[in-house]
């Protein structure tokens, strides 16, 4: 599966060993999140094996959303060696996200 659905319980363990991670915080009542969803899927497929692309449903995993201080969705957070290096807020074209991934690959 190109895009992983993160859970609070296994987030640290899953992300800990990954050099580069992109996390999309979303909810099913959020229009802009629905717009972004195919873009995230596409990036997940494109970067498979090079970066871990995943999603967090903020309703199902409010604790993760709180940990990352997510106060608007969609928010996409980039983690390099487990540390946040960039964050993009709002639905944006794929190039904005791939630009960040390419910078840290």
């Amino acid at each position: 599966m190109a895009v992983k659905h993160f859970k609070t319980a296994d987030f640290v363990q899953t992300v800990g060993n990954e050099p580069l991670v992109m996390v999309d915080f979303w909810a099913d009542w959020c229009g802009p999140c629905k717009m972004l969803s195919p873009v995230i899927e596409e990036i997940g497929a494109q970067y498979q094996g090079r970066a871990l692309v995943g999603k967090v449903n903020v309703d199902e995993e409010p604790e993760l959303a709180r940990q990352f201080g997510v106060m608007q969705i969609p928010t996409v957070v980039f983690l390099k060696d487990g540390k946040e290096v960039a964050r993009k807020v709002g639905a944006m074209p794929a190039g904005v996200f791939t630009g960040v991934l390419d910078q840290y690959l």
Binding site: C30, G31, P32, M35, P38, A91
Partner: peptide, 19 residues
Amino acid sequence: VVSALPSGGQWYVGIGSDM
């Protein structure tokens, strides 16, 4: 309209919490 995004030859437009 709070957001707009081109994807696959279409413009996706966020209207409040809908699209």
